[in-house]
Nucleic acid binder design. Sequence first.
DNA 1: CGACAGACTTAGAACACAATAT
DNA 2: ATATTGTGTTCTAAGTCTGTCG
Length: 572
Amino acid sequence: MPVVRLLRLRAALTLLGEVPRRPASRGVPGSRRTQKSSGARWEEEKREDRVKWRQLEHKGPYFAPPYEPLPDGVCFFYDGKPMRLSMKAEEVATFYGRMLDHEYTTKEVFRKNFFNDWRKEMTVEEREVIKSLDKCDFTEIHRYFVDKAAARKALTREEKQKLKEEAEKLQQEFGYCILDGHREKIGNFKTEPPGLFRGRGDHPKMGMLKRRVVPEDVVINCSRDSKIPEPPVGHQWKEVRSDNTVMWLAAWTESIQNSIKYIMLNPCSKLKGEKAWQKFETARRLRGFVDEIRSQYRADWKSQEMKTRQRAVALYFIDKLALRAGNEKEDGEAADTVGCCSLRVEHVQLHPEADGCQHVVELDFLGKDSVRYYNRVPVEKPVYKNLQLFMKNKAPRDDLFDRLTTTSLNKHLQELMDGLTAKVFRTYNASITLQEQLRALTRAEDSIAAKILSYNRANRAVAILCNHQRATSSAFEKSMQNLQTKIQAKKEQVAEARAELRKARAEHKAQGDGKSRSVLEKKRRLLEKLQEQLAWLSVQATDKEENKQVALGTSKLNYLDPRISIAWCFRY
DNA sequence: CGACAGACTTAGAACACAATAT
DNA sequence: ATATTGTGTTCTAAGTCTGTCG
């Protein structure tokens, strides 16, 4: 049901995607591309470009506090018998215990991975005893953390204030750095605390132990002549380096995927802000190229080369549907998700005719964060024909675009416009959609509230285009249920009123007097009123439902060129 | 080229806190 | 005053994309 609604909204949007923008201007003069041939200067500029700072000074990361053993009254039980755990084993047990009310702990993979890693932390003796997770009882541990959270919530105003001040002190000490003479806020100045890995979707590694980060894991990046951050007493940094071509202040390798985690600046910092500005400039530049690029990929649908055809169809999807590029993923390392280039035959269904349209493509796959993308969309005939061709003689698990990689696609895009990559289309189409929608929805004479509603609706249109969804919380389910109960009650009232109306009508027919006539009228009005109320309630429910699964934050934060919003504010 | 590491952006969940309804 | 709902912030996972190396 929700999918159907999303679909309806998306269908309206897809049309918007077709709206032609501003007449194509010629290539931007003086763009880097044109300088490329002039060799040395460009090379120099490029190198210059890579330098991110001249001075960088900071305090290093703030480490997660050491493990605090459980108080004596809190015990772990194995097979019904209390058992005192070694500190290491106990710490990992608390990671699991505090998650007891989370869905994760019901998942077989999570449990298996946790138990496996937990056993590695146990002493030989513990390992000898603890052989089955089913016999483990963490309920006391769980209760301890629940109580602790409740106690924290119940603190007095003063105590809360004190905690807040302490956090602020920490922020002041570790949360800022000096970059080229300016004090800049750091985004994440704390190392990630140890815990159980919470992968999204069907992640094969969920439940694995995420190791505690120690200074010996951490590489510090700062300028050579700055005050080098002090490692915590008794510890050393893994390395101190001075690389001014990168933005990070500290880094360590995480123990689940062996990938690198970074301490970086806050988005409001100059460096991050400039990058965001550049991103929107690139998207804006695409405006002048997009018509030509579109006619180019349309022409390529008929190319002799399979590779070119696949690229052209993929690009059409990326442009029209705002799909992500879709890099290859190592399987077994993460959840099975795809993007455009990694779509498989099983994700696509072709309908010669559906919903009154010809050449309908049905896409159904899990994208980033295992969010489902479901869309039925009419496509141009050559696209449809090409898809038939790409799917011919392939198994469901085979790649749809077997001759295409994100690298080759981006290489092609780079040739069409300097700085163009697949994700630029998402930024471009998101921003242009906001602009178009704002224009279509806002009226100068509207109230402020109505204008804000228009803005939010435009924002929602973008979120739907980009498939930004959120899980409906349990609180939402409850409030939805309340609403449904109300609707049900109203329905019964309507049925009752209808029955009474029928009775009154029969009465009036039999008696034919004025009194029975006025009763009849009254009943009629009552029914009408109740029906109206019912209709309003179901509209509310629909609205709530639609809103609840759309997440506006991500597009607001990453995709909408702020200049569009600012211009709109000034205008209205 | 293709695999891989590295760096950076984008993402939803969880949490904290404020606004509003009851 | 308290419960409920909405909103902003924090956290960190999961993407994109580039550069390097064999």
